[in-house]
Simulated assay, not measured.
Amino acid sequence: MIGTSETTGEVTVRFQHSDDIWRDFPALVPFALHVEGVGPGVSVDDQVARYCDLAARRAAPESELPEIQAWRRAFTRMGLKPTQYRCASESLLRRFRKEGALPRLHPLIDLCNAVSIAFAVPVAVFDVAYVSGPLEVRYATGEETYLTFSGETEHPAAEEVIFADAEGRAHARRWTNRQSGLSAVRDTTADVLIVAEALHESARADVERLATALYDELTALWPVSPKSEILTASAPRFDF
């Protein structure tokens, strides 16, 4: 929902997971962060190198990491082949293992991708200007639209887990598998919602560490004041 505060006149947007998602995936630990003022004019080389080094120190391949194994089980439950459709952090880890580096796209995306592989947790970044709230992680009806990075329009299948806004636009397909080109970060982006989600046994502690790391990096790189929260089934809503 997009609404206006009667006291401040500020516009608020809501992010949450549906009750069905919490019911079917009770181990879920999501983190949401909203930040304004994240332009492209900074260098994140040192930060990216540090988090990539942390990822490289993991002795086990990505398929043996508990963080990735939990997402593979979730994808199997969704009726997807986990080796055909991989969560975003697994895809990045596989690419990093093969190439020794990550693609460089935008300072914010580069930072979030590096944090993602360091923690083996999917991290999504949405340009809020292209989202009509509320943004909800829920099962698709089959009527939603999804814009690919190549400009094609797809319709997620019914019961597929998507990030859906109020206009029925899917901003991510197959949950943490693939984001939409519509709300992708670009050089003109200034206002973003960052979402990290984990399902493994130590998810709460790991997501708390990820949240602290990301908050510290953002405030050190940009003159910003992020708002963030770790969500739960009893407090599933993030207003910003």
Rank of each mutant, 00 (worst) to 15 (best):
D239V: 12
E201I: 09
H106R: 15
F75K: 00
T12R: 13
G100V: 08
V131F: 08
T148D: 11
I194F: 05
M78N: 09
E62D: 14
A118R: 02
T176G: 05
V224C: 13
A88P: 00
R94A: 15
G41V: 09
V192K: 02
V207C: 02
W71V: 02
E67C: 07
T141H: 04
A74T: 00
T153Y: 15
T83F: 08
R138F: 02
V137W: 03
I109Y: 02
A205W: 09
H200K: 06
E62L: 14
V42G: 02
C112N: 14
G142T: 11
F240A: 07
R178T: 14
R50I: 04
R77V: 11
T219G: 03
I117N: 00
E159V: 10
A166E: 13
T12I: 11
F25V: 06
D127I: 06
L54A: 13
D20E: 15
R14T: 10
L182R: 10
A55S: 09
T83V: 07
V192G: 00
E67V: 03
A220H: 13
H171C: 12
Q16S: 12
Q16D: 09
M78E: 12
C52T: 14
Y215Q: 11
L80R: 11
L199D: 01
G79W: 05
D239Y: 06
H200C: 01
G79K: 13
V29K: 02
C112H: 07
C112W: 03
R58C: 09
R237I: 15
R204C: 10
T232M: 08
F163S: 01
L218R: 01
V192I: 08
T212A: 15
G133C: 08
T4L: 14
V48E: 02
E62A: 15
A190G: 12
R77P: 02
G39R: 05
H106G: 12
M78G: 03
R50V: 07
L33G: 00
G39M: 03
A190L: 13
V185C: 01
V195P: 01
D191W: 04
E6I: 14
Q179I: 10
M1C: 11
P61S: 14
P226H: 13
D127H: 06
N113A: 12
R174L: 09
A55N: 04
D191L: 05
L28W: 01
T189W: 07
L102C: 10
V131E: 00
A157S: 09
E159S: 12
A60M: 13
T145L: 08
T141P: 01
I2L: 10
P82N: 09
H17Y: 14
L33K: 05
A172H: 05
R23S: 10
A27F: 04
R237W: 05
A166W: 05
A101Q: 12
E62Q: 11
H17I: 04
E217Y: 07
D216F: 06
Y85R: 14
E144F: 00
Y85Q: 12
A166C: 13
A198E: 03
H106M: 12
E10G: 05
V224N: 09
F25C: 01
A32D: 02
E229A: 15
K98F: 07
W22T: 10
E154N: 06
E201Q: 09
D24R: 10
L108D: 01
A49D: 08
H155A: 09
E159G: 01
F31H: 07
P66M: 09
V123L: 14
P223A: 14
E99N: 12
L210K: 06
